[in-house]
């Protein structure tokens, strides 16, 4: 697989081929987890941004041979506007009475890149970039810049944004230097 797009309205596009699911929003991600992954219960601890990034990366990478061999040459570089905003709201709701450590951890924008690196044993670069809007030029240039690192030969990269648990998209691909 070279590219994966997931939209909260139920559309899932794999290498340009579109499937439309009845499930929407968070239910779509949970449906895809059961259908396509199933063996990574940490998924259920994740916030919606991480669930989205995780499922998109699973669809992208699941057919690869030697998939879980540790490697340093593949980076994870994701871009978005809202970052962990959805989970920030969830955590904020706990601040007054009983602040939740498990929610707090997911208030960091780069946990989604970390989850993908951990799942796939990628010891290369992982970075999250926040942009004011989906600026294709900045994204293209930033990826090109990341390939300046001589160790980085490939990257799981793309756009991931969650306005709410019912309104999100991920458009990621595997790029080679």
């Amino acid at each position: 697989m070279k590219s994966v797009k997931i939209y909260s309205d139920g559309r899932v596009i794999l290498d340009g081929r579109e499937n439309v699911f009845e499930e929407k929003g968070l239910s779509l991600l949970e449906h895809l987890y059961r259908k396509e992954v199933g063996d990574y219960p940490k998924f259920f601890k994740m916030d919606v941004l991480c669930k989205l990034g995780f499922i998109a990366s699973e669809l992208l990478l699941k057919g690869e041979s030697d998939r879980f061999t540790p490697r340093e040459d593949r980076a994870v570089l994701l871009f978005g506007t809202c970052g962990p905003l959805c989970n920030d709201r969830n955590y904020q709701a706990t601040v007054r009475d009983y602040p939740s450590p498990s929610l707090f951890v997911y208030t960091l924008a780069n946990i989604v890149t970390g989850e993908i690196a951990i799942r796939n044993k990628y010891k290369g670069e992982s970075s999250f970039f926040i942009l004011d809007a989906k600026d294709e030029d900045i994204i293209k240039n930033t990826i090109e810049e990341a390939f300046q690192d001589p160790v980085t030969q490939e990257a799981v990269t793309g756009w991931i944004d969650c306005r709410s648990e019912d309104d999100f998209e991920a458009e990621i691909e595997l790029m080679v230097k």
Binding site: G83, L108, A109, N110, I111, S126, S127, F128, F129, I130, L131, D132, A133, D135, I138, T142, E145
Partner: peptide
């Protein structure tokens, strides 16, 4: 358009590298 690097506690170094 500025780029914001948000990479937990390494953000500052990640921004200098960027």
């Amino acid at each position: 358009s500025p780029v914001t690097v948000s990479n937990a506690c390494i953000s500052g170094l990640a921004a200098l590298i960027q």
